[in-house]
């Protein structure tokens, strides 16, 4: 039996006083698994990813991550260092002025020494075909460029689990292939939201569908 990295037990998540988006949802994310997360628009896929790293202020039920039950913001600090979350909207993800500063942000928070951070920034950008973007202004990039830089900010931290929210949205054919290759070659645990079935079929081997706030294994 492989190690369970995330375990959700009857998780209920809502925004304010609205009816819950996720309702008594239970699921496991096992180490090394590669899961595609699908569901209609508004079914709660992005909400689920945020909840996994403790970004939904308020939830009912239990959430197990990396060997512990987690509840408060402080419980999740470790989770966020070990699981990389790619936001759906790159404008939410990027907040530094230059690309290199943004990519360096996460690695610095991990406490890596400066030399290692600099190497990680350079290597990650190179892997994603972004060499030469170091000093570009993040908010002046094109949509697809912003997406690639957002991916770089997550990969640079070398997390154990990748939680990717529509990573290919806005990418051209070549960059989609590049990302596909990178994910296929990686042995990390994956939870990927995407509406691109070909992409999901090539990088994941299981599918979970969100329906009425619950997880259905397909």
């Amino acid at each position: 039996m492989s190690e369970v990295l995330f375990k959700l037990n009857e998780l209920t998540v809502r925004y304010g006083n609205e009816p819950p988006v996720l309702r008594n949802l239970s699921m496991d994310l096992v180490k090394g698994s590669r899961i595609g997360l699908v569901g209609r628009n508004g079914s709660g896929k992005s909400t689920l990813l945020s909840a996994l790293v403790g970004l939904m202020d308020d939830f009912d039920g239990e959430l197990w991550a990396f060997g512990k039950w987690r509840r408060d913001d402080s419980d999740f600090a470790e989770v966020r260092r070990r699981a990389g979350l790619l936001f759906e909207d790159p404008d939410d993800q990027l907040f530094n002025i230059t690309v290199s500063e943004d990519v360096a942000f996460g690695p610095f928070n991990l406490g890596w020494p400066r030399e290692r951070v600099i190497t990680a920034v350079r290597d990650t950008l190179a892997r994603l075909d972004l060499s030469g973007y170091e000093e570009r202004i993040t908010y002046r990039l094109s949509t697809g460029e912003k997406r690639m830089v957002s991916i770089a900010t997550v990969l640079a931290m070398d997390p154990e689990v990748l939680l990717l929210d529509e990573p290919t949205a806005g990418l051209d054919h070549r960059h989609t292939r590049l990302l596909e290759e990178i994910l296929k070659q990686s042995s990390k645990t994956l939870l990927v939201v995407s509406h691109d079935r070909d992409f999901l079929a090539s990088v994941t081997n299981q599918t979970i569908q969100l329906e009425n706030g619950q997880a259905v294994y397909l």
């Binding site: 790293v53 990389g84 936001f87 360096a104 942000f105 610095f108 928070n109 951070v117 600099i118």
Partner: peptide, 22 residues
């Protein structure tokens, strides 16, 4: 709203109140 989401994005990448200079 956006500033709240940016704070979430910072936390998601392990921000704990310190800035580092590249």
């Amino acid at each position: 709203d956006r500033s709240e989401r940016v704070l979430a994005a910072m936390k998601a990448r392990g921000y704990c109140g310190r800035f580092y200079l590249l």
